[in-house]
């Protein structure tokens, strides 16, 4: 006859990445992170364009409205838009240099954000400007798009530098 193994009489204890942060009240600290699946969906051709060194905006097929940041339907009349090539040279519409940021971008600070304008295009485009000291950035400055060679398929695949 087999001898019966005694059943455990104590709950097994584990230590998993959870920290007792404080008592009275009890405060716990733990890490959480997820893999998230995000589709660029109808905006995908814009990111494909960046990989080819092209900057694509949208043009309304009905009212002719133009958008420097693409959208598949016109915000004025609701009609479908078509893709439109944007010039690689534009101007600084406004700017700031960020010395702090969201945690994801803290390591990249300081960085300069700009809104880019093009004559004849109705709306603007958010990007980063490099190669200029914060105090030398000016509204109206001529700037040129450059593209990362190793595409990350992010809007930061394009950035701007001063012309000349």
């Amino acid at each position: 006859m087999n001898e019966k193994k005694p059943l455990p009489v104590k709950m097994e204890e584990v230590e998993q990445g959870c920290v007792l942060y404080n008592i009275d009240p009890i405060v716990m600290k733990y890490h959480y992170e997820v893999d998230y699946i995000h589709s660029y969906a109808q905006d995908s051709p814009f990111f494909e364009g960046l990989a080819k060194g092209e900057l694509k905006g949208s043009k309304c097929t009905k009212c002719g409205g133009t958008f420097a940041t693409p959208r598949s339907h016109c915000m004025t009349c609701g009609a479908e838009t078509e893709w439109m090539q944007l010039p690689l040279q534009g101007k600084v519409h406004t700017y700031t240099t960020c010395y702090f940021g969201g945690q994801e971008f803290l390591a990249e600070t300081p960085f300069t954000l700009i809104m880019v304008e093009w004559p004849g295009v109705d709306t603007l485009f958010l990007s980063r400007l490099i190669g200029v000291a914060p105090e030398d950035v000016k509204i109206g400055m001529d700037i040129q798009a450059k593209f990362k060679r190793l595409s990350q398929f992010k809007p930061t695949d394009v950035y701007f530098v001063p012309v000349g």
Binding site: C98, G101, L113
Partner: peptide
């Protein structure tokens, strides 16, 4: 898609 990955910071948007 277009804003968060570039700056990701509201103070930056308000500064502009």
């Amino acid at each position: 898609n277009f804003d968060y990955p570039v700056g990701g910071f509201y103070t930056g948007y308000y500064a502009m």
